[in-house]
């Protein structure tokens, strides 16, 4: 049982780290603001959830697990809201998303 739990925790942590990295790559590689924000917003939320789950599986004490669950809930509330606020602010200040149609029309 212990090995199953530690393997599951390891998998969660690895997947979380991979998602963190892919979010970072997304920031650098994606073409415009909204796609970059998508990369960070989506992968960051899932990545932090995965890492927290991995830590929960490792944490033996109950109060540590409860604290991690609270942190997880907070991230699930705050991260999407922050992404929404960013996108809204960008839209409000007049930044247009890069659309495929515009590109082909220009080309």
């Amino acid at each position: 049982m212990d090995t199953v739990i530690s393997v599951a925790s390891l998998l969660c942590l690895l997947l979380g780290s991979f998602l963190c990295l892919s979010g970072g790559v997304g920031i650098l590689r994606f073409p415009d603001f909204y796609t970059r924000m998508h990369a960070v917003g989506v992968t960051d939320t899932l990545a932090s959830a995965m890492i927290l789950m991995g830590l929960m599986l490792q944490g033996a004490e109950a109060n540590v697990v409860i604290k991690l669950i609270i942190i997880l809930l907070m991230t699930l509330f705050i991260n999407p809201t922050a992404s929404y606020a960013l996108a809204k602010a960008a839209m409000y200040s007049g930044l247009k998303p890069l659309l495929n149609m515009q590109k082909s029309k220009r080309g």
Partner: peptide
């Protein structure tokens, strides 16, 4: 009118 979702989330979070 403009910031409805953020206001909702913040309303939930402020007590915490």
């Amino acid at each position: 009118e403009q910031q409805m979702p953020i206001r909702l989330v913040v309303k939930i979070l402020i007590p915490f």
